[in-house]
């Protein structure tokens, strides 16, 4: 069924460009401009990869984008990767694994709790709904820094500092208002006739939610999953505060390569930054397919 959908879409796509006439040159022009802008987008990453492959002393003294050694010859220097991976007897792989565990739990939590809350906000009538929605929007507006200390005190009193629970539990109770609001907007874009038809067929709320709305909202769900992945991965502050050496994540480990009061390992920082970005990039590469999948709303029944 999904495959059919895709075939139909690609057929439509080629049809669309053919109809404009001179399809070849138009799309060549498009490709050209997309690549030109793409270079600007990707330049910093290229620089970082190049820096990670240079000897430490050449990173800032040589402007070349090619990794060169001290004599100006092209050479791939993997020292930064080796030393960065085994930083101070530790193991960067362990920190990556810790990041993955936290991120996986955060995604599960957000997908369950935020979609449910969004359904409640967008499709159900209940007393206090508008006030609750306003309160949820308010939680987005207060700068988070002033919440850190009260929240930390709370988790500390519960004896949970040093575990991943202070980071993961909030995701299971829909604290990320961003995703609730986003999902609400997507649900509101889906014609109500679909729910009503399901209700007439005798489907309950849960069934309507899981069988009608969620499948249609696949792109939004994919967005939630991707963003949760990236933002939890990069969520430096709570990882810094709540985790200890054993449960430390890759993002926190990265910040320890650079210290203005002593010496810094720039090569290792860039090498491990590249290592850290690769899984995130792969997740996006795979995940974004779902952004454009799903059952297109027909609008017509």
């Amino acid at each position: 069924m999904e495959r059919d959908q895709r075939r139909v879409e690609s057929a439509r796509g080629s049809q669309g460009s053919a109809r404009k006439g001179g399809g070849m040159s138009v799309s060549a022009l498009k490709h050209f401009s997309l690549i030109a802008v793409g270079v600007v987008m990707i330049y910093p990453l290229l620089w970082m990869v190049s820096a990670s492959l240079k000897p430490e002393t050449m990173i800032f003294s040589s402007p070349s984008l090619l990794p060169l050694d001290e004599d100006g010859n092209f050479a791939l220097n993997l020292d930064s990767y080796v030393e960065g991976w085994t930083m101070q007897g530790g193991d960067f792989g362990k920190y990556l694994l810790n990041s993955f565990i936290i991120v996986a739990l955060c995604i599960i939590g957000n997908l369950m709790s935020c979609t449910m809350a969004a359904y409640g906000f967008s499709r159900l009538m209940w007393r206090g709904r508008n006030i609750s929605f306003a309160i949820m929007m308010m939680t987005l507006m207060l700068p988070g820094f002033v919440l850190i200390v009260p929240q930390y005190i709370m988790w500390s009193q519960l004896g949970l500092v040093g575990t991943i629970l202070p980071i993961v539990v909030p995701k299971f109770v829909a604290v990320d208002a961003f995703f609730v609001f986003m999902m609400v907007q997507f649900f509101r874009g889906i014609p109500r006739e679909l729910d009503e038809a399901a209700a007439i067929d005798g489907a309950g709320y849960w069934r309507t939610f899981t069988r009608i709305l969620l499948p249609i909202a696949t792109p939004a769900i994919a967005t939630t999953a991707i963003f949760t992945f990236i933002w939890s991965w990069n969520d430096f502050f709570s990882q810094l505060l709540y985790l200890n050496r054993d449960s430390m994540t890759a993002t926190v480990a990265l910040s320890n390569f650079v210290d203005a009061t002593g010496s810094s390992q720039w090569g290792q920082l860039f090498a491990m930054s590249v290592v850290t970005i690769v899984p995130v990039f792969l997740v996006f590469l795979v995940g974004q397919r779902f952004l454009i999948q799903g059952i297109a709303t027909t609008g017509l029944k």
Binding site: M116, A117, G120, W126, F172, V173, F209
Partner: peptide, 8 residues
């Protein structure tokens, strides 16, 4: 609604 909103 109570069921759906409970986590929130």
């Amino acid at each position: 609604a109570i069921a759906f909103m409970l986590p929130w």
